[in-house]
Structure formats: structure tokens, C-alpha cells
Write a protein that binds this DNA or RNA. Structure first.
Lengths: 126, 126
DNA sequence: TATGGTACTAACAAATTTGTAAGTAATGGG
DNA sequence: CCCATTACTTACAAATTTGTTAGTACCATA
């Protein structure tokens, strides 16, 4: 997001874990604060910058831009600029991103289940 | 990890996205630097603290402790302390964590594929 | 009495991510 | 000429995560 230091321990550790573990690698690709939310919004087709901004409560234009840029760099979304004024830009999932959709659904179901389990274990410990 | 501020925008945003999106929620549960690696190591059964430390290159005892504590709090691992000297503690996946395994495998495959695609698109652009 | 092994904790510092506030460019419409 | 609209950028500050270093307790053994 800001540039990273090139040889910080932090950086080296990240390289190590993403190189040695494809699972960690995969999760890192979608690991920014707003990325999954953005990808989910795009699941049903293209959206413009302003549409994303309006659909995602709380995100600032700066954050939206940053996350979109990273997603684009990682090949998960495709950005299309139309030569118009005022500008028009839209975003859509790439093929490889679409392959994530069924996995997301399972993860999402798992999340819902986990949420319930945590809730019930909390309330039972009162 | 250190305590978080209670009403920072950051914190409120995180609450919002994890409450409104189960997928984001799920990914947040496994979102620490070393968490997935730890969970993977535990996939084949219990491991002691020192075994984890030795199997995960680069992790410090502090980080290992922190990540284990969070995983425990989130109900993904179970910690067992034996009343011995020197101390013995082991960690294992909980049931709900085990349910993630098949999903991990898919994600991991996706990661491997994504890695290749990125590589080939980089080399073809030289 | 000194040493060793295990699983940690504490105080601090560095790196990274996220958020705030205020711009910018281009052009059509009034 | 002035304003509105869209999709951004820039400089900065705050929050959060990660890493460094040096401890701790316990008891068995040398």
C-alpha cells in the first residue's frame, strides 16, 4: 500500500510463508481489509468506481482505490476505462477470480456456522 | 494482539465488514501472519509448542504464542497443559477447524494455479 | 550450587496498514 | 467564466501488527 521495505524481517517472513504454503499465499491475495467485500460486490457483474463506493459503507475513496489497484495487480479484477468526461471506469472479476466463487461460498457457510458456535459458547459460559 | 482501541474508525469498520459478510468474517479468523501455517502443521495431529516452533522457520516464540492464543480464543485449536516439569503443552485442531480442511485444500490448489498464471503473465510480458 | 530444558511473558521498537483532509484534471452546461 | 461530476492523488497522522531482546518459573540432574 505504501511501499514496503525491501529486506525487513517482516517482508522476508512474508515471502517465506507465501512461498512455502500455497494456502497462505492464496489467503494473502485476498487479505486486505476491503478486498473480499469488493470482490463479492463484483460477483454479479461489472460495477463502476462510484457504485462500489456507494455499496460499501465506510470505505473511503483512497482505500477503495488502493484495494482496487492491488486486486488488479494480482490479476483478480479487470479495470476498464472509457474515454469520456466525466470519467467512467468499471471493474469486473477475472476468470481466475471467478474460480474462487464456489470456494468462497463454502468458506462463507463455515463462517456463519463458526459465528453461531462462538455465540452459543459465549452465552453458555455466562 | 496488543489491545485495540475500542472505537477507532478502524475497529468500527472491521466490525461492520465482519458482521455484514460471513466470508470476510471467516477470512479474518485465520488472518494473522502465521495462523494458517500453524493450522496446517496441526492438520496431522497434536504438536507441542516446541515442535511448532521448530517446524515454522522464522517464527519467534512471542509470535507463536500470540497466534496460538488467538486461535484458541477463536475456538480453532485446543490447548492442553500437562502438569509436568519441564512444562509440556500441546495443541490440536478443534472440530470446527477440521471442517476447514477440505476448503483449505481447494484454496491451496487455487493458490498454486494463481501463482503459475501470475508467473507466466509476468514472463510473457518481458 | 549451577545448569538445562520448556513454555512462556514483558517492555520496547520497527514496519505496515488504515484513515483524514484536501486537492486534481477534464469538459459540458448554465 | 463558473460550477458540477467522476475517478482518482497527495501528504500526513493514527492505529495495528510484527519483530527484538531479555527475562520468568519450575524442578531434575550434574
Amino acid at each position: 500500500m505504501g511501499k514496503r521495505k525491501e529486506n525487513s524481517t517482516n517482508m522476508l517472513n512474508e515471502s517465506y510463508i507465501t512461498e512455502s504454503c500455497n494456502l497462505t499465499y492464496a489467503v494473502c491475495k485476498i487479505g486486505g481489509r476491503w478486498k473480499l467485500l469488493i470482490l463479492c460486490k463484483l460477483e454479479n457483474g461489472k460495477l463502476r468506481f462510484s457504485e462500489l463506493r456507494n455499496q460499501i459503507k465506510g470505505i473511503t475513496e483512497r482505500m477503495l482505490t488502493l484495494q482496487l489497484r492491488e486486486l488488479e495487480k494480482e490479476g483478480l479484477i479487470k479495470r476498464t476505462v472509457y474515454a469520456e468526461v466525466p470519467p467512467r471506469v468499471d471493474y469486473e472479476l477475472t476468470e481466475i477470480a471467478k474460480e474462487l466463487v464456489p470456494i468462497w461460498n463454502q468458506l462463507s457457510n463455515w463462517g456463519a456456522k463458526h459465528k453461531e458456535i462462538l455465540l452459543s459458547s459465549v452465552s453458555s459460559s455466562i
